[in-house]
Simulated assay, not measured.
Amino acid sequence: MIVVVGEALVDLAPARGDDPDVLRPLLGGSPYNVAVGLGRLGTDTAYLGGLSRDAFGRKLAQRLEDEHVSLHLVHRTDAPTTLAVVHLDDQARASYGFYLNGTSAAELSADHLDGWQRADAVHVSLGAVTLETDPAGAALVGLLTGERDDTLLSLDPNVRPSVIGDLGRYAARLDEVVRHTDLVKVSDEDLAVLHPDRGHGEVARRWAQAGPAAVVVTRGPDGAEVHLASGEVVEVPGEAVEVADTVGAGDAFTSGLLYALDRAGTLSRHRIRDLDVAGWRAALQVAVRVAAITCTRVGADPPHADELQA
């Protein structure tokens, strides 16, 4: 089983049509999207995070159930559902503003993080909730840096500058947390925000040498690359598609990557280090395909397994 940890929220996104001021509610949050993506791909998945008992929270829970994602690790709360306002630029790239304080995602604490230790892999996506969010951030840092057995630990920094105070300090803290993980998936845009004076390849190599088995860097339409602890780099090109928008594309990539690694039997701290170049190339190709299909549809709408062969 893969346990996905982090926020679930509602995106208020621009509606299609003539009025750009009309917003429609979409269920989302990076870890929530990853869990849905894994469920659609047929991977045994559980979501671990806070879900409100309000109307939005009930909708979030129902969708997870509909996508065959287990809720047995969910923390139920009376706090309102976290909200994000989505802005799309003229190239359909998304940026976000968050309503976080006092909401369901922010109140997750160490007391709520239990049960993941029995999983094959744990994936943490950040976003509205950062390493500095109180108390959820401290809980996630404890999970990411604590003791564990052979459970694979995966991280997507998913940087949202609008909820981060001192980016330099945050980048240094993230560098430290990365040392404890087995797999990092990060976009080239996130690395440029965290380390504007360095190329994404330089940062990825440094991270891979610090502890993880692999650091996967997504490059939007240009594909993806993985930097291995051995120093090897594997690259795959992007897939040309007609883009509806890019909402959820990075999360879909993460789902595709974890799905491919699960199918390859490499979801453990030790087995992932035995995956060869051909295996990594195959996993990246699946992840790129999943992300590309998602980009052809409006919103975070990842594919099912049978669509990968279409």
Score class of each variant (00 low, 15 high):
residue 115 G to P: 08
residue 284 L to N: 05
residue 171 A to L: 12
residue 107 E to H: 11
residue 142 G to A: 14
residue 210 A to R: 13
residue 291 A to S: 14
residue 104 S to N: 08
residue 58 R to S: 03
residue 232 E to Q: 13
residue 307 E to P: 00
residue 201 G to H: 12
residue 221 P to W: 10
residue 296 T to F: 02
residue 129 V to W: 12
residue 214 A to W: 13
residue 68 H to S: 14
residue 160 R to P: 10
residue 302 P to W: 06
residue 235 E to I: 00
residue 153 L to Y: 12
residue 264 A to Y: 02
residue 77 T to L: 02
residue 120 D to K: 09
residue 61 A to S: 13
residue 45 T to L: 09
residue 287 A to M: 03
residue 5 V to Q: 05
residue 228 L to E: 03
residue 81 T to G: 00
residue 160 R to W: 10
residue 149 D to Q: 15
residue 61 A to Y: 05
residue 261 L to S: 08
residue 41 L to M: 06
residue 114 D to L: 12
residue 179 R to T: 15
residue 82 T to W: 04
residue 39 G to T: 09
residue 202 E to K: 09
residue 111 D to V: 08
residue 268 S to N: 03
residue 189 E to L: 12
residue 190 D to N: 11
residue 301 D to A: 10
residue 65 E to G: 15
residue 164 I to G: 13
residue 155 L to F: 12
residue 73 L to C: 06
residue 148 R to P: 11
residue 88 L to A: 00
residue 80 P to A: 00
residue 44 D to F: 03
residue 298 V to L: 13
residue 170 Y to M: 09
residue 277 V to H: 10
residue 62 Q to D: 12
residue 39 G to H: 09
residue 272 I to K: 06
residue 240 A to G: 02
residue 105 A to T: 07
residue 265 G to L: 06
residue 147 E to P: 13
residue 76 R to I: 01
residue 34 V to D: 06
residue 204 A to R: 09
residue 301 D to R: 09
residue 152 L to P: 10
residue 277 V to C: 05
residue 105 A to V: 02
residue 37 G to I: 06
residue 60 L to D: 04
residue 65 E to F: 04
residue 103 T to Y: 03
residue 274 D to C: 02
residue 155 L to R: 12
residue 128 A to W: 11
residue 289 R to C: 04
residue 49 G to H: 05
residue 204 A to I: 05
residue 234 V to E: 04
residue 89 D to C: 00
residue 65 E to R: 15
residue 112 H to G: 11
residue 310 A to E: 14
residue 237 P to S: 09
residue 108 L to K: 06
residue 270 H to N: 13
residue 131 L to V: 08
residue 3 V to F: 00
residue 119 A to E: 11
residue 121 A to S: 13
residue 169 R to Q: 13
residue 40 R to M: 08
residue 24 R to H: 07
residue 11 D to F: 02
residue 195 H to Y: 15
residue 252 A to N: 05
residue 249 A to C: 08
residue 243 V to A: 00
residue 144 L to Y: 08
residue 134 D to H: 15
residue 103 T to F: 03
residue 52 S to D: 09
residue 108 L to C: 07
residue 216 V to S: 06
residue 106 A to F: 09
residue 302 P to M: 06
residue 77 T to W: 03
residue 101 N to D: 15
residue 6 G to P: 01
residue 142 G to N: 15
residue 60 L to A: 01
residue 285 Q to H: 11
residue 113 L to Q: 07
residue 193 V to N: 10
residue 270 H to K: 13
residue 252 A to V: 05
residue 109 S to P: 01
residue 175 D to G: 13
residue 268 S to R: 01
residue 132 E to M: 14
residue 276 D to N: 07
residue 104 S to E: 06
residue 181 T to L: 07
residue 27 L to F: 04
residue 11 D to V: 01
residue 193 V to C: 08
residue 188 D to M: 12
residue 290 V to P: 07
residue 80 P to L: 01
residue 238 G to Y: 02
residue 171 A to Q: 13
residue 6 G to Y: 03
residue 159 V to P: 03
residue 95 S to R: 06
residue 304 H to P: 01
residue 155 L to D: 11
residue 133 T to K: 13
residue 21 D to S: 14
residue 145 T to A: 14
residue 95 S to A: 11
residue 3 V to Y: 01
residue 231 G to W: 04
residue 141 V to H: 11
residue 10 V to M: 00
residue 161 P to K: 04
residue 70 S to F: 00
residue 43 T to M: 12
residue 146 G to N: 09
residue 73 L to E: 07
residue 130 T to D: 08
residue 178 V to I: 15
residue 96 Y to K: 04
residue 236 V to Y: 02
residue 93 R to F: 03
residue 207 W to N: 10
residue 295 C to A: 08
residue 6 G to S: 02
residue 44 D to E: 15
